[in-house]
Design a protein around this nucleic acid. Structure first.
Lengths: 189, 189
DNA sequence: TAGCGATGTTAGTCATCATTAACGTCAGCG
DNA sequence: CGCTGACGTTAATGATGACTAACATCGCTA
């Protein structure tokens, strides 16, 4: 929906509370209250936006993973999917990890659930690649990789898209090989 | 200052516009307008907060780097400094890269300048380690590493602090070794 | 001890904003 | 033709919130 696109840009730039219904309306050529024909309110709009993102990430991840022949392939698929999304929709990525707190409760739980599932997809794949690594460590590593990949909005335009995608993929893949290096510290404690 | 600490927590949790002057006052035991004895306004408060963070990061980075014997040591110092800061002040980190847009213009430029200087410290050190890498690529890699290190607020409590610090350091260090792998692609294009 | 400067307090004031009301337009279809 | 439902529009309305005013308190020092 065009409205959600525009709202994402605005939310990413100024934050949920920094954007008025008028602003969003203005961005799509209508004025203000027209949006209530499409969304029951500002928070509902945000909820739908985040729900959609979480679903897309989770679903894309799931399908890519089950299609992969082995764990390495699955990781590759997850990386590619996340990078693709992050490069294509930087503002959605930004809003997705900033504004969960502004989603009202029925939807918030569901979004959290999808996010958790998505993280667990990564953790499952990583568990297979690094069986000696305890899951909490893999979870932390996963969040770190998300941070790395989602840095995209901060370095927009520094590099051509394909180059950027490769750089991120290489850095992420390489970073993950470090996850077991100090695993002994974790195991012995 | 206690006020800035409290405000940072609140801004990190709900965003600049999602926090009222009353909220901040309440968090430090006074009520609302008392804050105007210490700051000329809400935006000025944010400006001071971000300016302070940028200065601390930049200054700490600079001093650590000049003390280091070689480029490897300098990178190590930068990593340690950033990780230390990110683990100690997660909400400042969060606010620092979310709310620049809400800082009014005289101060914004200065914060941007400090941020740029800080990034350039990293790029300079990395240039020494990977001379064949063009600076834009190193800049993108630096932002990616920041993203990785600043993932801390998202994985709070998953691991004990020391373990987390080591994991982040190892992942970041390792990720950076990937920066030259595909550098040929960049060089030949 | 009188006065002052720093710091709070409570009660406005004035904007902004989400949301609703009341009122068109108009395409499609009976 | 005339209705209906989708979609917009421009006024309220009612909160909330930043900021200011007017008025304490109180430690300090002349």
């Amino acid at each position: 929906m065009e409205i959600l696109e525009a709202a994402a840009e605005l939310f990413a730039a100024r934050g949920f509370h920094g954007v008025s219904i008028e602003d969003i309306g203005g961005a799509v050529g209508t004025s203000g209250p027209a949006l209530y024909r499409h969304f029951s309110g500002k928070e509902a709009l945000l909820a739908e936006m985040l729900l959609d993102v979480s679903e897309r990430l989770h679903a894309a991840g799931a399908s890519r993973v089950t299609e992969a022949p082995d764990a390495e392939g699955a990781l590759e698929a997850l990386l590619t999917g996340q990078i693709e999304f992050a490069l294509s929709h930087p503002s959605l990525i930004t809003v997705h990890d900033r504004e969960l707190g502004n989603v009202p409760e029925p939807a918030r739980r569901q979004i959290r659930r999808l996010q958790r599932l998505y993280v667990e997809e990564w953790v499952t794949v990583l568990s297979e690649l690094y069986p000696s690594c305890p899951p909490p460590r893999l979870r932390a590593a996963t969040h770190a990789v998300f941070g790395l990949l989602n840095s995209t909005p901060h370095s927009a335009g520094e590099l051509p898209r394909e180059t950027m995608a490769e750089l991120l993929r290489d850095m992420a893949r390489t970073a993950l090989t470090a996850v077991q290096d100090t695993a002994q510290n974790q195991a012995k404690s």
